[in-house]
Write a protein that binds this DNA or RNA. Structure first.
Lengths: 292, 292
DNA sequence: TTGTACGCGTTATCAT
DNA sequence: ATGATAACGCGTACAA
C-alpha cells in the first residue's frame, strides 16, 4: 500500500473489466436531454451512482438511426453492467431483446410488470386525475387535453386519469383531445390547428410541462389572457413551470433518478429476487395559470 | 463476415480497450446538470459524439468530496480517451495535473490560453457589454449586477464587459454589485439583502439566466412589477427565459457542445498541432423584462 | 504469507 | 495472404 501511494498506482479499468466481466458502469439511456425533466432525473442518477462508486455511460435516443441500437450495442460490447431507460418510445420486442442479456434493467416512467425488469414511476393516473378534478372543481366545462405519444405508457395512464375524473363528474362537461407527443413544437402546432377550427378552449391540460409551457407562451404572445381566457395545467413540475407560474402536477424527478439506481443495485446484488416496481407520489401545485 | 452475422458476434469493448489502449469514450465533466444550460450543451455533445461513434462517460462535480477527483480518476483508470469540461470551479493546478496525462482536453466557457488544452467559448465580454449598453441606452441610471463565482473565467469576462460599457457611458450612472455565484438560491438571498439595505434597483443584470429567473420570480411573487419597477436582463438564453419573457444574451448552447467534440477529435487525431481556441457569437434577445 | 501461472478477448507482430 | 503467438493489466486459483 505504501508503494501504491508512492508510485501513484491506479488499476486499469479496461483490464479489470476484462478480467472481472464487470464494468462498474450503468448505461443511462434517455429519449433526449433538452427538457428540464430529463436533466433533473439525470442529476438524481448521478448523485446515487456517485455514492455507490458507479460510472454513468449516457446516450440519448431521439437521434438514433436504428431504433434500439443504442441499448443493444452497450450490452453487446459489454460496456455496462446494466441500464436505466427513460424513453417513451420503448417497445415490447426491444425490451424482450434486452432482457435476454440477463443484466439489470430499470425502467423509469414505464411499469414493465415484468419479473426481471425493475421499474420506478410516479402516480401518473392519479396525478392526471387530480389535475382534471382541479379544473372541474373550478367550474370549467370546456376542456382540451394535449396528449403524449401514442405508445408511451405514462401518457396512456395520464389519459386514463383524465377520463376517470371526467366520468366521475358526469355529464355537462365537454372534453376534446389533441396530440402533442410530449413535444412543445408539435403541441403548439396541434393547438393552433385546434384553435382555428374550434376556437379557444376554456381550460387546457397538457400531459407534460414542456407542452403546457410552449402553448402558454404561444397564447400570451397572441395576447390571450391566462388564466382569464384559458386556464392551463401541466404535468412534471420542471423549473420553468415555477418561474412562469404554471399550475402543474409535481413529480419527484431527482428521487426518480436516485430510486432507479437503487433498484439497479438491488437487482445486481440479488438477480434471483423478483424485480421491484415502485411508484412515487405526485402533488398538485396550484400557481397562476389555473386557480392560483 | 457471414459467420459474424450468423453468430451475432460483437467485439468485447473491455478487451479492445485493453489491447488498443483506447476506449472510444469521451469523459464529460460538468459542474451540475440541473440547469437548462448544461442540458443543452450535453445534447450537442451527444449529437456530435454519436455521429463520430464515440461514447460519453458523464459525471457532475458539484457533489464531489475531493475536488478534481472525478477528472483524475477517469484518466488514471484509463476509462476515457480525453475529456470535455464545463465547470466554473476549474482551477489552474488541477488543469496542469490533467495536462500531464497527455490526452485531449477541451474546456467549455474557459479559455485556457494553453497550447495543449483546447477551448470553446462564447463572447462573454461582448455579450455582457451588449446587455449593459442595452440598459443604458434605455436610460436606466441605477444598475445592479449579479455576479457569478469569483474564480470563474466566464463570469470575470462578463464582469469586464459590464465595466467597459459603464465606462463608455461616462458619469451619471451608478452601478452596484452582488454575488450570486451563478446559483439561483444564492442570488435571491443576496438580492434580498441588497434590497433591504438599498431598496430596489431600477435595472438588474444577472450574469446568467438561472439567477435572473429566480430573482424575477421572487420580485413578481412580492408584487413588484417587471419591467415597470425593475428591468431585468439575463445571460445564456435557456428555454425558461423564452417562456418567461426574460430579455437575455443568447448563447449557442448546442453548438458549444458540438464544437467541443470537434475540438476533441481534432486534438486526438493531431496531438502535435497546437490546440484551438474558438469563440462563438452571442446575441441580445429583447423580451418583456427589459425593453420589450 | 509469498509467489507463479493462467485466463479474460482482442490487437499486433512475426513467421510461414 | 494466412496462421500462430505474444502482449495488454488484472483477478484468481493453486503451489510452495
Amino acid at each position: 500500500m505504501d508503494v501504491i501511494k508512492k508510485l501513484g498506482y491506479t488499476p486499469n479499468a479496461a483490464a479489470r473489466n476484462l478480467s472481472r466481466s464487470k464494468t462498474d458502469t450503468i448505461g443511462v439511456v434517455f429519449h433526449q436531454m433538452s427538457s428540464g425533466f430529463f436533466a433533473q432525473v439525470m442529476a438524481g442518477i448521478d448523485k446515487a451512482a456517485r455514492e455507490n462508486r458507479y460510472h454513468i455511460l449516457c446516450a440519448f435516443t431521439h437521434l438514433e438511426a436504428e431504433p434500439g441500437k443504442t441499448c443493444t450495442s452497450m450490452f453487446d460490447e459489454m460496456r455496462i453492467d446494466g441500464m436505466i431507460i427513460l424513453d417513451p418510445a420503448l417497445n415490447k420486442p426491444l425490451l424482450n431483446d434486452l432482457k435476454s442479456y440477463r443484466k439489470p434493467i430499470v425502467l423509469i416512467q414505464c411499469d414493465s410488470h415484468d419479473r426481471d425488469i425493475s421499474s420506478i414511476n410516479v402516480q401518473n393516473r392519479r396525478g392526471a386525475h387530480a389535475a382534471v378534478a382541479h379544473l372541474l372543481n373550478l367550474g370549467y366545462k370546456d376542456l382540451l387535453v394535449v396528449r403524449g405519444p401514442a405508445g408511451a405508457q405514462d401518457a396512456q395512464l395520464r389519459l386514463e386519469g383524465c377520463e376517470q375524473a371526467l366520468k366521475e363528474k358526469g355529464p355537462g362537461v365537454t372534453c376534446r383531445y389533441i396530440d402533442g407527443h410530449y413535444d412543445p413544437q408539435d403541441a403548439v402546432e396541434a393547438f393552433r390547428k385546434y384553435r382555428a377550427k374550434h376556437g379557444l378552449p376554456r381550460a387546457l391540460f397538457a400531459l407534460n410541462d414542456a407542452m403546457a409551457l410552449a402553448i402558454l407562451k404561444d397564447l400570451r404572445t397572441d395576447g390571450v389572457k391566462v388564466p382569464e381566457q384559458v386556464a392551463i395545467v401541466g404535468f412534471d413540475g420542471v423549473d420553468s413551470a415555477d418561474y412562469v407560474g404554471l399550475t402543474t402536477i409535481e413529480t419527484p424527478m431527482t428521487a426518480l433518478g436516485e430510486g432507479a439506481v437503487r433498484l439497479f443495485l438491488k437487482r445486481l446484488e440479488a438477480p434471483d429476487q423478483p424485480a421491484e416496481h415502485i411508484q412515487l407520489e405526485t402533488r398538485l401545485v396550484v400557481r397562476n395559470t389555473c386557480g392560483g
